[in-house]
């Protein structure tokens, strides 16, 4: 325990916490991006995918138990990531009270923007959850359905058809991708797995994943705004209530039963 406390007290120990929690979130956003692509399979595919997430392990844990477990891990990761960064930044400011030295442009824009992109991500997470998880912020194109719990496709379709909502998401995804572009490489350096023979590969991999994430995340809002993805079927709403009844035999509901 003593050893752990000393470890966490050093900047390297703190950086390790930032790296590990960053890795957890990195894994999450990759999964999240892939999940979003279900939207291209149509409203039913996306809604069923969302439903499936709620039901993982439902037979023995009960509905959404697993989802809550994952959520708690993520909440802890975000809090630990941010708290540790605040502690580190405070130390860094103390060790650099005046700064007259210019940069030699060794650092990338992504590196110098870590705190800015990180703070914007934090703001984004709050807005994003308020909008699509809790429905507190309900902005949707006039004439589309408002927020309805579980009607994922319809919810995002209504919102992304407001051009500035779509733009906001695209800009925020640029921030996320910039953050994880530097973050992924930086994490390898923090964990000590980066080394000259691997450096190019790690930097290249970080850039590739960041670009794939950006395209993947932005494809849905852009496709919806441009109507490349069609409006949700009108009867989707009518189907929803049954579908989200928390029946204990939910595992036995096959696709056919829902129609």
């Amino acid at each position: 325990m003593q050893r752990l406390m000393t470890f966490y007290d050093t900047s390297i120990g703190k950086k390790l916490v930032v790296a590990v929690t960053g890795l957890i979130m990195y894994g999450f956003i990759i999964g999240h991006m892939l999940g979003n692509l279900k939207a291209f399979g149509g409203a039913t595919a996306l809604d069923q995918y969302a439903e499936m997430l709620r039901e993982i392990g439902a037979s023995f844990l009960g509905n959404t138990t697993f989802l809550w477990f994952a959520r708690i891990v993520l909440i802890v990761a975000v809090v630990a990531h941010v708290v540790t960064i605040i502690q580190l930044s405070r130390r860094n400011r103390a060790s650099r009270p005046t700064r007259t030295v210019r940069r030699r442009n060794a650092s990338t824009l992504a590196a110098t923007w870590m705190a800015i992109s990180g703070t914007l991500i934090l703001v984004f997470i709050v807005i994003h959850l308020a909008q699509f998880t809790f429905g507190w912020i309900d902005i949707h194109k006039t004439g589309t359905e408002g927020f309805e719990y579980g009607a994922v496709y319809s919810n995002i379709w209504g919102a992304f058809n407001v051009w500035w909502v779509a733009l906001f998401y695209v800009v925020m995804m640029a921030m996320v991708c910039m953050h994880v572009y530097h973050g992924a490489w930086s994490m390898c350096q923090t964990l000590g797995v980066d080394a000259p023979p691997r450096n190019q590969m790690i930097r290249g991999g970080a850039a590739t994943i960041a670009i794939i994430l950006f395209i993947g995340f932005c494809s849905v809002p852009v496709a919806m705004l441009t109507n490349a993805l069609s409006a949700p079927p009108i009867d989707e709403m009518a189907v929803e209530p049954q579908k989200y009844e928390r029946s204990p035999q939910i595992m036995n509901v096959s696709e056919g039963d829902q129609g």
Binding site: T10, S11, K14, K15, A94, A106, S107, S186, Q189
Partner: peptide, 15 residues
């Protein structure tokens, strides 16, 4: 010792 001396933490800027 590096931390005790009040040096900052590495953010991998490579400057």
């Amino acid at each position: 010792s590096m931390d005790e001396e009040g040096f900052g933490s590495c953010r991998n800027y490579a400057e």
